[in-house]
């Protein structure tokens, strides 16, 4: 279970980092608020995971020295595209936590997966990407 939680932590860290870049390219107001709310949600999940891993006496993996963007983020369109990709990635990380947890811990992981899937849909809507949803959110795409 440590590995899965550590994977979720890495995904949440990456999301927090990415939203720092995404926000500045979005329209002021509702769009930037949405990015800020997403970043806050990822911070809460991150802090929670750090605590859980500490309780497991698992050292948290060192934060990588630098992240590499999958593509240059230069404008609103690429920022929205990155937001979608980030949320899809976080959903994948949390999905792997489901089989290795039970009861409330699993319910918590499912909430994280679900919230990422919903946020990805919100970003797709703003980006006018179709379809708005994935068939199996969190399932790795082959």
């Amino acid at each position: 279970m440590k590995d899965e939680l550590a994977g979720a932590l890495a995904a949440e860290e990456a999301a927090i980092w990415a939203y720092g870049l995404i926000g500045v390219h979005l329209r002021e107001g509702a769009e930037q608020d949405q990015a800020r709310a997403a970043e806050d949600a990822h911070r809460v999940r991150r802090d929670d995971l750090v605590e859980q891993l500490a309780a497991l006496r698992a050292g948290t993996a060192p934060t990588p020295a630098g992240y590499e963007l999958p593509f240059p983020v230069t404008d609103r369109a690429t920022a929205l595209k990155l937001a979608v990709q980030i949320e899809d990635g976080v959903a994948q990380a949390w999905r792997t936590v489901l089989p290795v947890t039970e009861s409330t811990q699993r319910a918590d992981a499912l909430s994280a997966l679900t919230e990422s899937a919903v946020r990805a849909t919100k970003w797709r809507k703003l980006a006018r990407l179709t379809p708005l949803t994935l068939i199996f959110p969190g399932r790795p795409t082959a």
Binding site: A91, R95, L110, T114, V118, T121, L132, F136, G138, R139
Partner: peptide, 29 residues
């Protein structure tokens, strides 16, 4: 689906979890 995911054996948890998340994202869409 969320309740079924919580109660499911490990082998089924990911599938049912994805279905719960999909339904939530449909509602958002």
């Amino acid at each position: 689906a969320a309740a079924a995911c919580k109660a499911a054996p490990a082998a089924r948890a990911a599938l049912v979890g994805s279905i719960a998340a999909a339904r939530a994202s449909h509602a958002e869409a």
